[in-house]
Design a protein around this nucleic acid. Structure first.
Lengths: 99, 99
DNA sequence: CAGAGAACTCTGTAAGGCAGAGTGGAAGGA
DNA sequence: TCCTTCCACTCTGCCTTACAGAGTTCTCTG
């Protein structure tokens, strides 16, 4: 289980996962807020979320607030595990580079 | 100058840069040793080194040991700066994700 | 002469990333 | 009623890139 998780490593997805991991335990992050946080176009964000959801790393919840549709993304248990494994991997690299 | 350095971020190049940064101040890392360290085929390593050299992040030195050709790669001042900027960026993300 | 080793370069393939356009349903204004 | 807007996508098309593996050049070794 060493080595990088290439799904998470991609730079935009890394930011998405970091944002969702930071918000874990909450009610998820709304699509538009996430888009602003990571700096993506909506089409691009949608497709990365699909990729992450396909890997089982995030779950997407759709509902309505009043009459407006709302999509919230949150990190799954698997996603949190994979994210932590990847951050450990990265820290290992960063630390080894100090040597 | 915030944001990821996409040249460095790519996972194999990140390992290359980390290895070279760890070996900075020395005489450079030999091609074959580097190939083993990062786990690449020789063609792939050669092309990534070309990319990094083109960005001014590494310098390549060729000479002979006895009659055998030897290529050593080392990180440049620019490369070290860029690498540290990128590690700062990554640490920032990792730390923000703990929150 | 055959083979191996170094360090590439080249080729072909396959996979992505991205912006931007299109979609569809609902709300709200003129 | 018509028009626009918003939300959250999906689709299209373009273009870059990563990669393995084959070929290359040079030299020494058996």
């Amino acid at each position: 289980m060493d080595g990088p998780d290439e799904i998470i490593h991609q730079s935009l997805r890394l930011r998405i996962m970091a944002a969702l991991h930071a918000a874990r335990g909450g009610e998820g992050v709304e699509f538009n807020r996430l888009r602003a946080l990571v700096g993506a176009t909506d089409g691009n964000l949608g497709s990365h979320l699909t990729t992450l959801a396909g890997a089982g790393y995030v779950s997407l919840e759709k509902d309505f607030v009043g009459k407006k549709p709302r999509t919230r993304a949150s990190i799954s248990a698997d996603g949190a595990r994979a994210f932590r494994a990847h951050t450990d991997y990265l820290r290992g690299i960063l630390d080894s580079a100090e040597g």
